[in-house]
Design a protein around this nucleic acid. Structure first.
Lengths: 206, 206
DNA sequence: TAGATTGTTAATCGATTAACAATC
DNA sequence: TAGATTGTTAATCGATTAACAATC
């Protein structure tokens, strides 16, 4: 229970737990156990208990975990018990889809500004958010104290965009461009590349 | 070099190598080394060499790897040296975006059929592919011998859809619905959930 | 109380890394 | 040849799991 630097792989599982708890809650359950949770997620019950033990004691012997309480606790741990403003860079087909995706706002991630280098797109409005020239990037990020960016540009300009974002003070990047980004080690990057997931599965086919 | 069952985590890195090689190739390079590759990817050079050694010997001492050759070899290993037909289930906003995304076809994954339960959408055409009633699922999959499916339905019906896909013989599922699926162990599932990636990063913010 | 399930320890398992002989 | 880099071994490191006392 000491603050011994929680492994990132453990942090990576917390959102999975949160998602499962959310579902259990929706289904009307009030309590669950590490065993039930593990069953649903295909994870060992011991691992779930161990993961949670990095942060405190959230259960009761004999009865397990109160779903709503555990949800709240994990939300606090992950800092998702608040709204997060986000900037989106790139408004091609992919950027359009991201801007229109309701799933972000429903989890309290709000796209506050959209940037594109194409002046034809600048001035257009997507879901009430006006597309801005990428020249305004720095001002918007510092004025609104935004820490999170989503990159949805072509791969060729993604590194350049990332550099600019880092320079503007962005601390976390969700990158949809199919390229590994180089950033300072205090900046976090996560990748979304559906093709890579498909390529990983075809290894096992035929 | 024996066939000792390659760890899945190694398979998961091959597409990353492939992506980097592709980029190096585009940039006009002809040779690379495990060190250069590792530098770009933030991975140790020893790990890259170890990963590749599961499959054979692809480099030369002193000079490293011929990019084009290594690309071809990894492509063969992953079975992405061929076209793969794919079915898409669910044509909401997300499904629309997936159907319109050029990145799949460019890597030889072709959406051959789209299914939706909404009869209003059935008959519509997206990029030349006509939306079909989900009742035709079984026929299409068996006639075209399709092994890969993409789920882009609401979370509440995703498990039900997955069950049906498995029943029809699907062997690999790319799931965009925010829910952990339960499938037989010979069926592969990969998840795309951008919100989870964001939640993982906010842990480290403020 | 009896049954269930937690939190935690210690053992196991697996993955990463450092080092180096082989060799281009 | 001299320099560079591979493929592989062995050592290290870290993550998962089994087991169980504690306790609701």
């Amino acid at each position: 229970m000491a603050t011994t630097e929680v492994p990132d792989i453990v942090i990576g599982r917390l959102p999975i737990y949160l998602r499962a708890l959310s579902l259990l809650h929706q289904e009307g359950y009030e309590f669950t156990s590490s065993q039930e949770l593990g069953q649903r997620l295909g994870i060992g019950s011991a691992q779930i208990r161990k993961d949670l033990s990095f942060f405190g004691e959230f259960g009761k012997q004999g009865t397990g975990y109160e779903i709503k309480y555990l949800q709240d606790q994990i939300s606090k741990i992950l800092h998702v018990d608040r709204d997060w403003p986000v900037v989106l860079v790139g408004l091609g087909d992919l950027g359009q889809a991201i801007a229109n995706y309701a799933g972000f706002a429903s989890k309290r991630f709000h796209i506050e500004a959209i940037f594109d280098s194409d002046l034809v797109k600048v001035g257009q409005s997507v879901k009430g958010t006006i597309v801005q020239d990428i020249k305004n990037l720095s001002d918007v990020i510092s004025n609104q104290k935004i820490q999170i960016a989503i990159i949805a540009t072509p791969a060729v300009v993604a590194q350049e965009v990332a550099d600019k974002l880092v320079e503007c003070g962005i601390r976390a990047i969700l990158n949809y461009a199919p390229i590994t980004l180089t950033v300072p080690e205090d900046v976090h990057v996560q990748y979304i590349d559906p093709v890579m997931h498909l390529q990983r599965m075809t290894y096992y086919l035929i």
